[in-house]
Design a protein around this nucleic acid. Structure first.
Lengths: 346, 346
DNA sequence: ATTAGCACTCTCCACAAGCAAGTGCCATTC
DNA sequence: GAATGGCACTTGCTTGTGGAGAGTGCTAAT
């Protein structure tokens, strides 16, 4: 019992229609309404029997004895996994999408635009993680002396992003020494990807110890301090306020929880990290996410890639009752366009 | 008619008690309840008469015929302007405040912490504008070549903040030329305040034209492109979600408007800019702000200064019914502590 | 297996009654 | 004449009732 094998085609078709109707209307769906979909081939009474089965399987439930039925998270899951017929993107949406994402702009700009596009088109919340900079190339590094022995490290990747960090080396350096160290690092490492730079930094000291002079060692040590850090993940969220318009999310306490999760970021990031593992579109429906704040929400995500390397996740957050048929292809296409827009070759 | 001169001491005292009671309870205040404050020196009937006067003057109103009275924005205004007795800060609040703000940290960190402190202590929303960098000193400037003639300008102020901007000079420079230009600018302008650098850049070209060689002119032109821009104002907001707990703000449409205003920033910035003109604590009560989204909110702000120069605004946003007696001194003190924390001399 | 019929359950709405809070007004008091 | 006590009145909130509507589950018939 409780296995979808039990379900014949008719039951599945019925579930499909029920979910579609509920997504459209937001009202519990009754047997009479569903019967209309079947051109009087099936009477309401029969449908009631089938619905009773579906309820027993945990796919649908009724909010009270004499209301229609509503899909459960499991019901939605079955729907998106096997029943759903995706709708191709409308032409105007596609043009709106590419219009925003195909202009060559600042990197962070593109990410922000993608997030905004996601929320604008869906009228829900859009989210895009900042692309991992592992594969970005180091183009320039610079050390500036601060007070109290501290050193401000500035490094630029891929002609675009500027990162900076304050480090505290164990010994004091003169401005000239810092300049030398930067010159050395720029000559040796510029043009290589950050991840390879990191790897080399970590191994070089042991291997080539004798070949290096003190200045080089100092430079390498400082670069390690600057580059080998936990890279703090982050994301750009837009259209959160759209979520305030859904009656499903009108409970203020829940909504507050949700917005606090958005602000604190860490649970959202954890959730998005799970999406990084599998390529392509992934979906969390309601309680599936495992986070209380997202209990009433669904999350449709996709990884996006630059040069076949996954660099981030993007997605749409909305109520569980969302038009999955449209959202899924939309998220998919947006991810591909964002990947393309981020590709430096263009 | 409608002039506060009409009011005798007793009426004012009554208004004061009424506002205080309403701030505490959130319930319309009736004549009977107010009578208790006066130790039976005044009967409810008398108080009713006085309240009728206050209502005619537009200082209070009743939500319906037979409820108690609630202060209007004008009533609150009179209260904060002339009736309010500020409460000194509780010791623990003060210690919490100084604990967070007295550690010498990153500049942007301090601003974020201040915002967080404001919201944590008040359980409302805290807001702090990013300090204007006019008076900050230029400590280092750097040009890096990008593709398509573009140049990435990085400049560091006051040993702390790193700013970067992509400019597009009219001619192409070699890396060596860029290095030279940066060297020249660093030798001449490092240590001077950004505003003075800007002034000099704008005038030097006319005045000392003959004394400068081409390289210097190029350097000055690029510096102008980088430094003479509209400085985009911004702020750090925290604890917005606290606002979701107030029943006064539980109307979802209004709340949505408010959060959208927070996200779009420009109307909030306009509002905060108004506070820059006058020193010290300023208050907008409800509709006084002139922005629909803030109709149900009050904003208590104060400018904060570094070296007697006003560099920003900070404040607290909450429902009109807030404990002004505590919030006002709290905002005042926080502003002073933030100013001190930002002072590079320490 | 499917269907028609029917009793049952539950929500929603409207309306009324009773209660509590508080007012406005008037006649009275000091 | 200002302050007060008394009283009728208004209003919102709560509770209860009753009917309409929607949808179900069960049973008997096809």
């Amino acid at each position: 019992m409780g296995n979808s094998q039990n379900l014949n085609d008719r039951s599945l078709q019925l579930l499909k229609n029920l979910v579609e109707r509920y997504i459209q209307s937001g009202q519990p769906v009754g047997s009479k309404a569903l019967a209309q979909d079947f051109d009087a081939k099936l009477s309401p009474a029969t449908i009631r029997n089938v619905m009773a089965d579906l309820e027993e399987l945990g796919l649908i439930y009724s909010p009270h004895h004499s209301a229609g039925r509503i899909p459960t998270a499991t019901g939605y899951r079955l729907f998106v996994d096997s029943l759903l017929t995706v709708k191709p993107l409308a032409a105007q949406e596609l043009s709106y999408l590419s219009q925003g994402l195909e202009n060559p702009n600042d990197n962070t700009d593109v990410v922000a635009i993608a997030s905004k596009v996601l929320s604008d088109v869906t009228q829900m919340a859009g989210i895009v993680t900042i692309p991992r900079r592992e594969m970005a190339c180091l183009s320039h590094i610079e050390f500036l002396p601060l007070s109290h022995n501290r050193v401000l490290v500035i490094f630029v990747t891929d002609e675009q992003e500027v990162h900076n960090k304050i480090i505290q080396p164990s010994k004091t350096f003169s401005p000239a020494e810092l300049q030398q160290a930067a010159n050395y690092l720029n000559s040796v490492y510029a043009g290589r990807s950050l991840s390879s730079v990191r790897d080399v930094l970590l191994t070089q000291m042991q291997q080539d110890h004798q070949k290096l002079n003190q200045g080089m060692l100092d430079a390498i040590n400082m670069a390690k301090l600057a580059l080998v850090d936990e890279q703090k993940e982050d994301y750009v969220l837009s259209g959160e306020t759209n979520l305030m318009s859904f009656s499903e999310l009108s409970d203020m306490d829940r909504l507050k929880q949700l917005f606090e999760a958005f602000n604190q970021k860490h649970s959202v990031i954890q959730l998005l990290d799970q999406c990084l593992t599998a390529d392509g579109v992934q979906i969390f429906i309601g309680e599936e996410s495992g986070y209380q704040a997202f209990e009433q929400c669904s999350l449709v995500t996709s990884t996006y890639s630059v040069n076949d390397e996954v660099v981030g996740v993007l997605g749409v957050i909305g109520p569980t009752r969302m038009a999955y048929q449209k959202i899924i292809p939309f998220v998919d296409v947006t991810a591909k366009l964002l990947g393309a827009a981020l590709n430096p070759k263009s």
